[in-house]
Design a protein around this nucleic acid. Structure first.
Lengths: 232, 232
DNA sequence: TCTCTTATTTGCGCGAGCGCAAAGACAGCG
DNA sequence: CGCTGTCTTTGCGCTCGCGCAAATAAGAGA
């Protein structure tokens, strides 16, 4: 993120750009708008007309879907190199989710017409996006199955392992999950409640599998969690 | 489906082909293989290497995902004009679901390399597929939210309404759901059990909202079901 | 350092709906 | 027309985990 290297390799080589030439990528980037957002900022809200697609350059978003007063579902986190709101390609749609910044984030965005022209000009880009969406579809299908078939504690275990794999940072204590993650977030992500998550984490902490503080989790024994998630 | 009109308008004008010329469509069709399948036939099984994409010309498929002995989730039905297994575009993947024929079905299929070439040659096709996948993603997200936030009976109401809208046929009794749909299927679709579905349908039958028999449901009062699904 | 706010823990009771079991209904087939 | 397998119904008990309430802990800001 220095001035000399405005688009780090990690981004220009993001999955959505694989197979595209350097020139094509910089042309695509040139048509987008870059912005910074602080923690808690809302990129778009569920129900708003979908007019803009986003690519996260740095930081992290969370996508949520609302249901009545207070109840919400945390659908997924979007981290650097990933797209959000592919839906905005298609005119006349509304965002089906709300996107909120977790950490401070840098984001590039394209409006609907621009992105559609880019897709028609670069079939490879369309195919890459198709792949990204299909991958997410698969993940969501798996979580849907878990929600249907597994007990609350197992879903919590899987959620922690999934988030750990995506965003874990190794420390001498164990694998630290590197952003604010409250009991409430985990509950919204796993389809349980704050209370159940808290009770479960407490019991794992007593067993020495994890260490946890306020909005902070360190996984000490991932293997134990895996076994727990897999067992009948 | 006469000899003179091997691909009826309903199919050649399917959403995935919108915006493509007649010549392009017939070229795409020419590269596929057509087949008939009987009820219960399995097109592909979860975990098999994904090598072929399918488009349903007539009939109906169901996509399911397995979890342990006997437990399964019914992800969605695929009816005429819809694609299945877009995942097969990408080498080295496995089918994440099982596809089974419900009624007798006619299906056209393309292997992985062919479809990938078609996508690169016809960006419009790629964009249409992207749209189809995104639409399904949205539907799955909504169902995921329901599974998380609503009680079993409300989810069953929504499921019946959704299936009714997709496949209802008007009769003098009410709106008939036009294919074999067992209590077990509904349970797998809504994430409940056969028992809960049976109890719920019985109670609605007593209220006169529906009529039901073995693997058969007629919706008499859709409005009552809607109100029931929406209420807190 | 003190205060205020927000996150977390834990006890307790309750209700939705799961799941077994057994009986009843219906379709298909010879 | 009766047999057989499958689908459906319904009673009953039990468990998971929700959800309130109240206490406690941990940051954030002045």
């Amino acid at each position: 993120m220095t001035d000399r290297n405005p688009f780090p390799d990690a981004i220009t080589q993001a999955d959505v750009f694989s197979g595209l030439g350097e020139k094509e990528v910089s042309c695509i980037f040139g048509l987008g708008r870059r912005n910074f957002y602080g923690p808690g900022a809302v990129l778009f809200r569920e129900g708003d007309p979908a007019v803009t697609c986003y690519l996260v350059l740095a930081g992290r978003l969370k996508l949520t879907k609302l249901h009545e007063e207070g109840k919400e579902l945390l659908l997924r986190y979007i981290s650097a190199g990933q797209l959000a709101a592919a839906i905005a390609l298609f005119a006349g749609k509304n965002y089906p989710v709300t996107a909120q910044v977790v950490d401070r984030a840098e984001i590039i965005s394209w409006d609907h017409e621009t992105m559609m022209k880019l897709l028609m000009a670069h079939p490879r880009l369309a195919v890459n996006m198709l792949r990204a969406v299909i991958d997410r579809m698969e993940e969501l299908q798996s979580r849907h199955l878990e929600l249907h078939a597994e007990r609350a504690e197992q879903r919590i275990a899987r959620a922690i392992l999934r988030i750990m794999n995506q965003s874990g940072r190794k420390t001498d204590e164990g694998i630290l999950i590197d952003f604010r993650l409250s009991r409430r977030d985990l509950a919204d992500y796993t389809g349980t409640t704050l209370y159940t998550v808290s009770r479960t984490l407490s019991s794992w902490e007593k067993q020495g599998w994890i260490a946890s503080g306020r909005e902070r989790i360190v996984v000490i024994d991932p293997h134990a969690l895996m076994l727990f998630a897999e067992r009948d």
